[in-house]
């Protein structure tokens, strides 16, 4: 052969797989501990650690030409742009038009037979304003 491929040592594969299985257990365990908003942050940190191990060792990017790592990182950058710009719309709709701040409330067909409720389960009338708010109007 004109060139020799890098052969990853067996011990690395086994160590990485063991670490991935261990971290899977940790993420399940941590999910039962109530940390409020930190739960999702920790879950994503563990997932990203696992993903990094898979990409660098199983997918061999640690030893490959760095142009391949660049391609992969670019895909994540574009995903980041996709998420950020979409959230800039959906998260701040209420700032420009207060009347659209409430969630879009498309509902499944089975709801037709039920009284309408808002996202918190409070009953609403057909015009979309909740009885809760109407009560405040009467006071």
């Amino acid at each position: 052969m004109a060139h020799q491929h890098h052969i990853t040592p067996l011990s690395i594969y086994l160590t990485i797989a063991a670490t991935l299985l261990f971290l899977s257990g940790v993420t399940v365990w941590v999910s039962y501990v109530d940390l409020g908003a930190m739960n999702i942050v920790i879950a994503m940190l563990i997932a990203t650690t696992k993903a990094t191990l898979v990409v660098l060792f199983f997918m061999h990017l640690l030893w490959d030409d760095k142009k391949l790592l660049t391609i992969f990182v670019m895909s994540l950058m574009f995903l980041g742009i996709f998420i950020t710009i979409t959230l800039l719309d959906t998260e701040f709709r209420g700032g420009v038009n207060p009347e659209v701040k409430d969630s879009i409330n498309k509902r499944a067909a089975f709801y037709d037979s039920l009284p309408l409720t808002d996202t918190h389960g409070n009953p609403v009338d057909e015009h979309g304003s909740s009885h809760h708010e109407e009560d405040e109007d009467h006071h």
Binding site: A17, L20, L21, F58
Partner: peptide
């Protein structure tokens, strides 16, 4: 994860 290991 195990299948990823066996593939590698």
């Amino acid at each position: 994860i195990t299948s990823s290991l066996t593939m590698a």
